[in-house]
Nucleic acid binder design. Structure first.
Length: 428
RNA sequence: GGAGGUGUCGCCUAGUCCGGUCUAUGGCGCCCGCCUGCUAAGCGGGUUGAGGGCAAACCCCUCUCGCGGGUUCAAAUCCCGCCACCUCCGCCA
């Protein structure tokens, strides 16, 4: 939810923000009209209600004809109040609907346009040149098979397309990555969290995943519950309806959870391997802070993501995602894309978003600040991937493979893999 | 899943039977002030949140006693539904 005052005071700014995302400004005018309607209905209701209360208070003291007249009048008012209240509820609901359709205005620095209009901010590391090394790299499916690490056939047999088993060193690799990620997060002051992966509609909607994104979300049959696509959802909703003391900010949480995605509309994309799956596990960072601090916090989250990918010896680039590709809640988003040798391109491994006070307003998360700092007002929320298991495993296996099909373990990961320095093929 | 109990302002609590100055009592904590070598104690005041009147302030008004309906001129209070927590039973890792 955007700041209602901003909409009222400077609607042209919101119109411009819609344009930058490639969206229509109609919803802005709808919201403005709904706000007018809402306020006039509130005034009308309150006027009637005040009169009703004022007259009602006189009834116990009144006698005879006077009392009868008051009863008659308040009875009329009672009906009018009920009607006005219903009208107000309708107006509030259309206002809410119009407001929640408006995405967070993108940062000035975010590139305009859609998915392909990102800006590359930097490259870290250099992609390996397998041609120069004199061998053809195997893809992660083949590496996973010969290492006994990834069983895609049985994943499909048991659960269907886009499912997999991690086995042996594959499973070990995930646990190692989780522990490496959690150790880094803990050292950086994050509180470690294991959150629920099933949430109520409020949490899903509050984080902006029930709008256009709803098609990608699994809903539990016969229950009012959703499977989360990221632990951003339970982490954001964690403090919903709370007022946080200013001196407890920033609050940083790092959660390990499964992520479930329908991948609707991605038919035919990434059908091979475990790049795009219906379920994967992830370690996610999440921060609560002030809007003023959020921009610096966003850079810190990005730095922690880069630190992690660098430890793993991956080559990657950082992109500044364009306005039209930000999703509902984000004001700015940076993706880290790692080089996937057999695809010859960079693929998203991590992503960090600054949602400013957009989610906090929807979830009613506020901070209590001194009066000269605005008193009680919405906080800012930010999220960032520390490690998405499947894609990280893809990048690791493909990047660190050797001609014989073995895979070198990056030094940082060895303590978490029982000291193993190399993963060796177990099947031809 | 079944039975019973509980839900009041940051925390605790009065009020609910018997509807009407409840504009929700008191304590703790917290904030401001007074007093006092300092601190503590004591004294006085303040302290739920949201929204509307306006561009803002003062001020006024409305809503807020778990949530949502209903009855009534009037609901913390009566009725119905739901939710959460506690105890016991059943089931289960």
């Amino acid at each position: 939810m955007i700041d209602p005052r901003l909409l009222r005071d400077d609607p042209d700014r919101i119109r411009a923000a819609q344009a930058k995302r490639g969206l229509s400004a109609d919803v802005v005018d709808q919201a403005l009209a709904a706000d007018e309607q809402r306020r006039s209905s509130i005034t009308e209701f309150e006027r009637l209600r005040a009169e009703q209360k004022q007259l009602g208070a006189q009834i116990p003291k009144a006698q005879g004809d006077e009392k009868q007249a008051l009863l008659a009048r308040t009875k009329e008012l009672s009906a009018a109040v009920k009607e006005a209240e219903a009208a107000q509820n309708v107006a509030e609901e259309s206002y809410r609907a119009a407001m929640s359709a408006i995405p967070n205005p993108a940062a000035d620095e975010a590139p305009a346009g859609g998915e392909d209009d990102f800006v590359v901010l930097e490259h870290v590391g250099t992609p390996r040149d397998f041609a120069a090394e004199g061998f053809e790299p195997r893809d992660h499916v083949e590496l996973g098979r010969i290492l006994g690490a990834i069983d895609i056939d049985r994943g499909a047999k048991v659960s269907g397309a886009r499912f997999y088993y991690l086995t042996g060193v594959g499973a070990d690799l995930e646990l190692a990555l989780v522990n490496l990620a959690m150790d880094q997060a803990r050292a950086a002051g994050f509180t470690t969290v294991i959150p629920p992966a099933l949430v109520k509609p409020r949490a899903m909607d509050g984080t902006g995943f029930l709008g256009q994104a709803a098609d990608d979300v699994y809903r539990i049959e016969g229950e009012d519950l959703y499977l989360v696509g990221t632990s951003e959802v339970p982490l954001a909703a964690y403090h919903s309806d709370e007022i946080l003391d200013a001196d407890t900010l920033p609050r940083r949480y790092a959660a390990f959870s499964p992520c479930y995605r329908k991948e609707a509309g991605s038919y035919g994309k990434d059908t091979r391997g475990i790049i795009r799956v219906h379920w994967f596990d992830k370690v996610e960072m999440f921060s609560y802070t002030t809007v003023e601090e959020s921009f610096a916090e966003h850079q810190r989250l990005l730095a922690w993501e880069k630190e992690f990918l660098t430890k793993l010896g991956l080559a990657f680039r950082v992109i500044d995602v364009a306005a039209g590709d930000l999703g509902l809640s984000a004001q700015r988003k940076f993706d880290c894309e790692a080089w996937i040798p057999t695809q010859g391109k960079y693929r998203e491994l991590t992503s960090t978003s600054n949602c400013t006070d957009f989610q906090a307003r929807r979830l009613d998360i506020r901070g209590r600040f001194p009066a000269d700092q605005g008193g009680t007002r919405p906080v800012a929320t930010l999220n960032g991937t520390l490690c998405a298991m499947t894609r990280t495993i893809v990048a690791l296996l493909e990047t660190h493979q050797q001609a014989d099909g073995s895979v070198l373990v990056p030094e940082a990961l060895r303590p978490y893999l029982q000291g193993r320095e190399v993963l060796k093929p177990v099947v031809p």
